[in-house]
C-alpha cells in the first residue's frame, strides 16, 4: 500500500497542475513555472540542510545548469527540453562531484561561506568571459518537447509549464521516498550528532558528499528550467542574491514537507511580483521581516504546519503494554 501511495499522489498532483495551468492566465503560468524551477533548487538545499549543511552558494549549480542548457542550445543546436534539463542536471552534478572533496570537511559557517565564495568566483569569471556573453548573457530560443514544437508563445508557455510540473512532481516524489529511507534518516542523524553516527559505524563524510552532489544535480535541473522559461542566461544566476533566495525558500519551507518547498516558492514569487510592482523600495524589507517572524515562530518552517509527526502505521500493532 505504502509503495503505491506516492505514485498515486504524484499522478493526481500532476493532473491537477496541468489542468489548472490550462485555465490560468499567462502571467500565472509563467510565475508558477519559475516558482517550480526555483523550488527544485530549494528542494536540493532542503536535502542538504537535513544533513546539517547550509549552502549559501547554491546559485553556482543553478547557474551551471542554466549555462549547460543554454550553451548546448547555442553551440550544439540541441533544442529538446528534456535533453537540455537532463544535461543541466548532469553538468551540475558533475561539478558538484568535482568540488565535493574540497568541501567535505567543512561544517556550518565555513561550509556556507566557502560555497558562497565558489559561486562568486563563477559569477566573476562569467562576467568577464565574453565568449559566454559576459555580463549581458545570452538569449535562448524556445526549446521543443520531444516531437512537439509550440506554434505560439502562449502554447510554449503552457507546454513548458506542464513539462516543469512533470519534473517537479518527479523530483518531489523521489525526495519524499528518500527522506523516509534509512539513508535519508541518516542525514537527520548526522545533523543531530555526528560523533554518534561515526560510532554507529556510518560515515558522516559520505552522507554529506551524497547530499551535496544530489543537491547540485537538482540545482542544475532547476537552473536549466529557469533558463528555458526566461529565454535568457546571465551571470546573475550565480550571484549571491540567487543563493540567498534559495536559502530563504528552504528556511521558509522547513525540512519536513516536500510540498511546502513548492508552496513557499509560489508564495515568494507572488509576493515578489506584487510588491516589486507596488512597493519597489520596501519589498525586501517585508521579506526580511517575514523571514524573522518565520524563524521566531515557525522554527521548523511552513512544512511543520502541513505535516504532523504522526506515528507510523506499524506502531499501533506493537504490544506496548506488555513491555512495562
Amino acid at each position: 500500500m505504502r509503495r503505491f501511495g506516492p505514485l498515486a499522489v504524484a499522478l493526481a498532483s500532476f493532473a491537477l497542475i496541468a489542468a489548472l495551468g490550462g485555465t490560468a492566465p499567462n502571467w500565472v503560468v509563467f510565475l508558477t513555472t519559475m516558482a517550480f524551477a526555483k523550488g527544485i533548487v530549494a528542494l536540493g538545499l532542503v536535502l542538504l540542510m537535513r544533513g546539517g549543511l547550509v549552502s549559501f552558494g547554491q546559485g553556482l549549480f543553478y547557474c551551471a545548469g542554466a549555462y549547460a542548457a543554454g550553451l548546448a542550445m547555442r553551440w550544439a543546436d540541441a533544442s529538446d527540453a528534456l535533453l537540455l534539463v537532463a544535461l543541466g542536471g548532469a553538468v551540475a552534478l558533475l561539478l558538484g562531484l568535482a568540488i565535493a572533496p574540497l568541501l567535505a570537511g567543512y561544517r556550518s559557517i565555513f561550509f556556507a561561506t566557502l560555497t558562497l565564495a565558489l559561486s562568486m568566483i563563477a559569477y566573476g569569471i562569467l562576467n568577464k568571459t565574453y565568449s559566454l556573453g559576459g555580463s549581458d548573457g545570452i538569449n535562448l530560443r524556445a526549446p521543443s518537447f520531444l516531437f512537439y514544437r509550440a506554434a505560439t508563445p502562449d502554447a510554449f508557455g503552457y507546454a513548458l509549464f506542464v513539462f516543469t510540473g512533470l519534473v517537479t512532481v518527479a523530483a518531489a516524489v523521489l525526495c519524499r521516498l528518500h527522506f523516509d529511507s534509512m539513508r535519508g534518516l541518516l542525514s537527520l542523524a548526522a545533523r543531530d550528532n555526528e560523533i554518534r553516527v561515526e560510532y554507529l559505524g556510518a560515515s558522516v563524510r559520505r552522507v554529506s558528499l551524497g547530499n551535496f552532489v544530489a543537491a547540485a544535480g537538482l540545482g542544475g535541473m532547476g537552473g536549466a528550467l529557469a533558463a528555458l522559461a526566461l529565454g535568457h542566461i546571465d551571470p546573475d544566476f550565480a550571484f549571491w542574491t540567487s543563493s540567498g533566495e534559495f536559502v530563504f525558500l528552504a528556511i521558509l519551507a522547513g525540512h519536513q514537507s516536500v510540498v511546502a518547498v513548492f508552496l513557499a516558492s509560489i508564495l515568494l514569487e507572488l509576493v515578489r511580483s506584487f510588491s516589486s510592482q507596488y512597493f519597489p523600495n520596501s519589498w525586501q524589507m517585508a521579506l526580511g521581516i517575514f523571514l524573522l517572524l518565520v524563524i521566531l515562530f515557525l522554527p521548523e518552517g511552513l512544512g511543520s504546519l502541513l505535516r504532523r509527526r504522526n506515528p507510523p502505521p506499524e506502531a499501533a500493532s506493537l504490544p506496548v503494554e506488555s513491555l512495562k
Binding site: 540567498g244 530563504f248 523600495n281 525586501q284 524589507m285 521579506l287 526580511g288 523571514l291 524573522l292 524563524i295
Partner: peptide, 12 residues
C-alpha cells in the same frame, strides 16, 4: 539567517 533577514530589512 537572522542576520540575513536583517540585511534585507536594513537594505530597504
Amino acid at each position: 539567517l537572522v542576520t540575513y533577514a536583517l540585511f534585507l530589512v536594513l537594505e530597504d
